[in-house]
Design a protein around this nucleic acid. Structure first.
Lengths: 155, 155
DNA sequence: GGTAAAGTATAGTAAAACAATAGGAATTCA
DNA sequence: TGAATTCCTATTGTTTTACTATACTTTACC
């Protein structure tokens, strides 16, 4: 049930790109800068961002002053989309995958115990990852930084 | 987010062992029989069942008339236990793992976006897999075989 | 006690996946 | 033109996966 480095780096990079600059405008950031900030191998990150671009999640600009930026608002890019591009289907077994179904060979899929359970697992993962956008994540991160002090109450 | 063959075969085998014989007694089954019924390589399954035994989930008997049987009632063996033995931690990233925590290197774990989300994923998977016992699965399978016809209603 | 049936244990291996690394081509801007 | 940047493909080293092999131990039964 592991997320690959590819997936991890990709998600981290997308989160960087999802954080608006101080001017509030969507950030345009170079590979090198992301790699340094997040301490990942730049050449590897290059490949990853390229995949993400080819999948339509990122736009890029070559040359001086170039870099990457999100192809759409952060609220419209889900973590599920990113993970699928970089790590493939979310499903633990192919026979419950929506995007890459393959029969698992059991005589009756409708009554296969493994399938019944793994289908639940797939749905749970998908609900979380497809239901969480980059904007949701950056919001949660901001919240974690400045925790609501409501619960403290008066002395 | 994949379950390995090792994990898959192991789960299937445990489900076989969890199905009580016609006499209602807990089944004692040989490697070879499970391998044939479920169409898995016998030698590979041998290793898998051995791991499960060493982890305390199975008991075995050598010699003529021997075989494997569950170490505890099917209701007291969760799928999570089985998967952990065969495929390791459920967590997508080590830094949210309960059984194999390792820092991921981010400057502040409490405000790391990846961690916030992956921790949810881990919990969702764990709730499902640790919350489902072998008995639960066999029950669901039986239900799938004989679907309740309640919903049909009169014409 | 011998023998066949079972599990125990460990080592080996081919292929695939993973995690990079390398290096040049293409593009943009000043 | 030249520096900065992405684009693209190939290669490499390591780890994991999915088996396969071999030898050993225990047990039941005749």
């Amino acid at each position: 049930m592991r997320l690959s480095k590819r997936g991890e780096y990709g998600l981290r990079a997308m989160m960087v790109l999802a954080t608006p600059g101080p001017d509030g405008k969507p950030a345009v950031v170079q590979i090198r800068e992301i790699a340094e900030r997040e301490e990942m191998p730049a050449k590897f990150l290059e490949q990853i961002l390229l995949s993400l671009k080819n999948a339509g999640l990122l736009h890029s600009k070559m040359g001086v002053g170039g870099g990457y930026h999100l192809a759409r608002p952060a609220s419209e890019i889900s973590l599920g989309q990113i993970v699928r591009v970089l790590d493939g289907p979310l499903a633990p077994v192919k026979c419950v995958s929506q995007m890459a179904y393959e029969p698992c060979g059991c005589p009756d899929e409708e009554t296969c115990g493994l399938r019944l359970v793994m289908s639940d697992v797939r749905n749970a993962i998908s609900e979380l990852l497809d239901g969480t956008s980059l904007a949701d994540v950056t919001k949660r991160v901001r919240k974690a930084h400045r925790p609501t002090l409501v619960e403290a109450g008066p002395n």
